[in-house]
Amino acid sequence: MIEYTLNGPASQERARIRLMSALRENRFPQAILIDGPAGIGKKRLAMEIAKALQCTDPNMRPCGHCFGCRMADDSGATDGWVVPMESAEAHARSSDDVSAGSKAKTVEDFKKAYIEEIQKNPYRVDVFSTGAFISVDLMRMMTSSFAMKGDRVRTVIIAEADRMNESAANAFLKTLEEVPPDTYFILTTNSREKMLQTIRSRCLALHLLPLSDEEVKSEVLRVAGEDFDESSLTDDVIGLAVGSPGKALYYAEHAKVWCKLAADFVVHSLRGNYTDLFMELSETSLSDAYEANRFLEVLSFLLADLLREQAGARLRMPETTTSVGLANFPRVDATALELALVAVQETMSRIESRRVTATMSLQSLSLKLFEGYK
């Protein structure tokens, strides 16, 4: 019997054991959907699975050196991936359509760049822009490559599959209804609820768990490289990550500014120091909708931590939470904090919908954050 080994953190070992058992017993499904929070390693596991399926070693898979393993690791083998793209990127000409010697970027060039970024750091949470999506053209490009498969096993990783638009989802559904022989689809998603139920029902569901705090630190240091400043992995950053190395890497870059701003946001809102707060917001440059909502995640986490502080529970952001000095505001009780959390979530929805600018939304939030408790 061929032995299979899928590497990864101990916290996700149960999921890997389930997959390795299916591989050994030759009952691996042709479509699998891996879901879980952002940045916990879904794409990393997908790449491990792809190598195991494509490996041709007669004893141990993935071996890492056979043709199948090398193809799975080759960012130039773009037909093994479907990734979200900006509209202009997705509509770029194919390499088959450009003239010889042309320096114009093709859709394969854009896809290769994304694959390289994922392979460099599979935990990264900001590799795709908020406007990137999976179009029906990208799905058609995937299916058109099936004719060139030959007799080898084909794997296709569909990253962030919940970003399929309606046409792409319907096109993929037709493919799932009759999957070509020796072809396997590995879908990853942060939000399986956003996907068509008919697609979900045709895939083996695999939920990936967050990592422990120690595993988060270990994985961040492993993928970040020698130039990474380990001191940026503060207790507050690890707390914000909630088991996600990808979020830890992201917040390691932003937390120093955003944690202070979140604490100031609460204190200035309570004291009515709106001029100072508006000035600080403008200096932090949160006009981009994506970054504004990532900051609001920090603010939301802080408010939840203030609730924990009132209840005497362990804090996830000890330094930032204690800096607020909630004892100086005796009128702010659990109800006030819960209402503030609701207000933050509503603001995030407005920013995401692009109905109001991020700057105006943040200013409006500061005015009503603790309405009636100041």
Rank of each mutant, 00 (worst) to 15 (best):
P181H: 05
E219N: 05
D213M: 05
V267P: 08
D182Q: 15
R140W: 08
E193N: 14
A132G: 07
K149F: 02
V220N: 10
I157R: 02
A248R: 07
P181M: 04
S135P: 05
A168V: 05
G131I: 00
S135G: 06
L249D: 08
T143K: 13
D213C: 00
L138D: 10
E253R: 02
P122R: 05
E226F: 04
V156S: 11
D162A: 07
G131H: 10
L196P: 09
V216G: 11
F133T: 13
R154N: 10
G239I: 02
T234Q: 01
A132I: 02
P122Q: 10
F228I: 02
D162N: 09
A241V: 03
W258R: 03
S144N: 15
D137L: 12
Y250I: 01
A255Q: 03
N121A: 12
S144W: 07
V216E: 09
D229R: 13
Y250N: 07
L249H: 07
E193R: 12
T189A: 07
E226S: 15
Y251T: 00
R163N: 06
E160S: 14
D162V: 00
M139V: 15
I186R: 08
R202A: 12
G243T: 01
D213S: 15
E214H: 11
E215M: 05
L209Y: 04
P210F: 03
A241D: 03
K149A: 14
L206V: 14
A159I: 03
E219L: 08
S129N: 11
E230W: 00
H254P: 00
R222F: 10
L249K: 13
N190P: 04
Y184A: 09
A171Y: 05
D235T: 08
D264T: 05
L240P: 09
C259W: 01
E178P: 04
I238F: 06
L211E: 09
R222S: 12
F265C: 08
L261F: 06
V127T: 14
D236Y: 05
A263K: 03
E178N: 13
V216L: 11
D213I: 00
V257C: 08
L249G: 13
E214W: 03
D264V: 04
A168D: 11
E214V: 11
S145A: 14
G239Y: 05
V153C: 13
E177N: 10
S244C: 08
A263M: 03
L211K: 08
T143G: 06
D227S: 14
N190M: 05
G246Q: 05
E253T: 07
M148A: 15
V216Y: 09
T175S: 14
S167C: 01
E219D: 05
M195T: 00
T234F: 01
F265G: 06
E160W: 04
V237G: 06
V242C: 15
F228P: 03
W258L: 06
V267E: 11
P122D: 09
I157W: 12
T189I: 04
T175I: 13
D162H: 15
V127W: 08
Y250V: 06
D182I: 00
G239Q: 04
A252L: 00
V127M: 11
N190K: 09
